[in-house]
Structure formats: structure tokens, C-alpha cells
């Protein structure tokens, strides 16, 4: 096999085309959001909101929606959880990891409760499918939703970038310069929630939370200004998704896990280079 076919052969398959497009879109966007949430000490927000999304999906199933339609119940549910976390953080009584941990545990427990409350006649649901998704199983309509959401969220982040960056550096100084810090805090977490709900369904919880944390943490070691860190993070998220999928195809191993390990290898490399 030559180098060209290494890249072209997998992408001759429609399911791989959809997977790589979804992976790059979600990877790039989660990485961009990750730059802000990781810098704010909210590294676990991806994991927490992904588990909250499970609670929302379970609520949708309890209300009689199908697994695919339950996402539309999970969306407002997860956004509410994210606003709850933002509200608690604003009160300043709890650290970010504590607030995330509490909301994550409660919404996950609600999810389990909701699934148990479904009538016995309801169709059985494979919890693993809900929790872990599969990037290789992304359908055309799912892909369109992912791309539309990613485009809208990316636009919102780009438009508010300079104010978000200032508020992330120091909320008090940003507020004194006239930045609407409170509004931006709620917006950032709500947008993260929207992306995560859509992404969990397509790529799964583990991949979503690693897309939020690892590219941002890696880029932090490479860039000296926030916008360079963001550019590196997006490149790492997009590149990690594409390379991980290629490797998983050729090695015939789990795609999500390979993407995460690729991102992890990039982090290790940056760490090694930094120490020199």
C-alpha cells in the first residue's frame, strides 16, 4: 500500500466520509470551547454535561420519544443543567469541579430513574448505545444536524471571542472594562451543552469529553497567546479526529478509542518537547 491509498482508500467508503466529517467538526469545535473551559478550570464540564445529556435522553424516552428523537428533550435539559452550573459558579460558593460533579451525578441518577420508570411494555433501550455512541454509525441526517449546530456555535464563539477571552483572563477586570461577563459565562456553558448533546449522540461521551480537554491542554503548552492556543487546539482536534479514524480503519480497531489515544499521544509529545 502506498501513502496515497493509505489516505484515499478509507474515504472511498461513505460511512468513513461521514465519520471523518463529523469527527473533524465536533473535534474542532469542542477544542475551541475547550480552550475557554479548561482555562477557567472547568476541564470536567464536557464529561459532566455529557452525563447530564444521558439524563435528558432518558427523560425523552420516559415521555415516549424514540432514542433518536429523545435528543430534542435532552437539549433543553442539558442546557438547563449547564445554566445551573453557571449559576452556582457565579454565586462563588463552589469550585468548578465540585459544581460540575454534583450536577453530573444528580442528572445521571435522574437518567437511571427515568429509564426505570418507563412502562414494562416500552421497547428496551441499550444504555451503552446512548452513552457511547459510535462515530462510524453517523447517518446523513445526523451529520447535517452536527454540521449545522457546529457552524452556529462556532459563529457565536467567533463573534464574542475578544470579550470571552478578556472575561476568561480576569472577570473582574473585564467587567470594569464594560464586558458583560455574566452573560458570557451563561452563554459559554449553554453553547458547550448544545454541542455536547449533539456530539454525544454521534461520537459518544468518552470522545466528547476528550475532545474538550486534550486538544486545549496540548495547545496550552504550544501557544503563547490565547488565539494561537485556540488555533493549535482546533488543529489538534480536527487532525486528531482524522488521523485517529485513519489509523483505526487500517489497524481494524475501535475508532473512538483510537482517536482518544491519538490525541493523548499528541499531548505526550507536546509535554516531552516542553520539558526540553
Amino acid at each position: 500500500m502506498n501513502l496515497l491509498t493509505f489516505f484515499t482508500e478509507p474515504f472511498a467508503q461513505p460511512f468513513m466520509q461521514r465519520a471523518v466529517i463529523a469527527g473533524m467538526a465536533v473535534g474542532g469545535l469542542c477544542a475551541m470551547l475547550g480552550v475557554f473551559v479548561v482555562q477557567r478550570g472547568l476541564s470536567f464540564i464536557g464529561d459532566g454535561l455529557a452525563h447530564a445529556a444521558f439524563g435528558g435522553i432518558a427523560l425523552g424516552l420516559l415521555l415516549g420519544a424514540s432514542v433518536s428523537h429523545a435528543t430534542w428533550i435532552a437539549l433543553p435539559f442539558t442546557v438547563l443543567v449547564s445554566l445551573g452550573i453557571a449559576f452556582v459558579l457565579r454565586r462563588g460558593k463552589l469550585r468548578g469541579d465540585v459544581a460540575t460533579g454534583v450536577f453530573f451525578a444528580v442528572s445521571f441518577a435522574l437518567g437511571v430513574l427515568f429509564l426505570g420508570l418507563r412502562p414494562v411494555t416500552a421497547q428496551p433501550v441499550n444504555v451503552e448505545t446512548v452513552l457511547f455512541g459510535s462515530i462510524l454509525a453517523v447517518g446523513s441526517s445526523d451529520l447535517l444536524v452536527v454540521l449545522a449546530v457546529c457552524a452556529l456555535v462556532a459563529l457565536a464563539i467567533i463573534v464574542t471571542w475578544t470579550r470571552l477571552a478578556y472575561a476568561t483572563f480576569d472577570p473582574e477586570l473585564a467587567r470594569l472594562s464594560g464586558v458583560k461577563v455574566e452573560l458570557l459565562d451563561y452563554m459559554l456553558l449553554a453553547l458547550t451543552a448544545v454541542v455536547i448533546v449533539v456530539a454525544v449522540k454521534t461520537v459518544g461521551i468518552a470522545l466528547v469529553s476528550s475532545f474538550v480537554v486534550i486538544p486545549a491542554a496540548t495547545a496550552r503548552m504550544l501557544g503563547r497567546s490565547l488565539h494561537r492556543v485556540a488555533l493549535f487546539a482546533v488543529a489538534i482536534g480536527v487532525g486528531g479526529a482524522a488521523l485517529g479514524l485513519l489509523l483505526s480503519y487500517h489497524l481494524n480497531v475501535a475508532s473512538g478509542a483510537t482517536i482518544i489515544l491519538t490525541l493523548g499521544a499528541g499531548f505526550g509529545l507536546a509535554l516531552a518537547l516542553r520539558k526540553r
Binding site: 482555562q39 483572563f169 503563547r224
Partner: peptide
């Protein structure tokens, strides 16, 4: 501010910090 109240790990230069106060937003 007191030295302890801001994030020392934020990837920023002195120039960006000063210009941010000039503009009211973080400079690209």
C-alpha cells in the same frame, strides 16, 4: 489588583493585557 487575584497561567503578553484595557476587549 492584588497580585493573587488573576490567572498567572493565562497565555498572554504584557502588550495584550495593556491593549485589552485600552479597547475593552482582548486583542486579536
Amino acid at each position: 489588583p492584588q497580585r493573587k487575584t488573576f490567572d498567572h497561567d493565562f497565555p498572554a503578553t504584557a502588550l495584550e493585557l495593556i491593549v485589552a484595557n485600552l479597547r475593552g476587549s482582548w486583542p486579536l
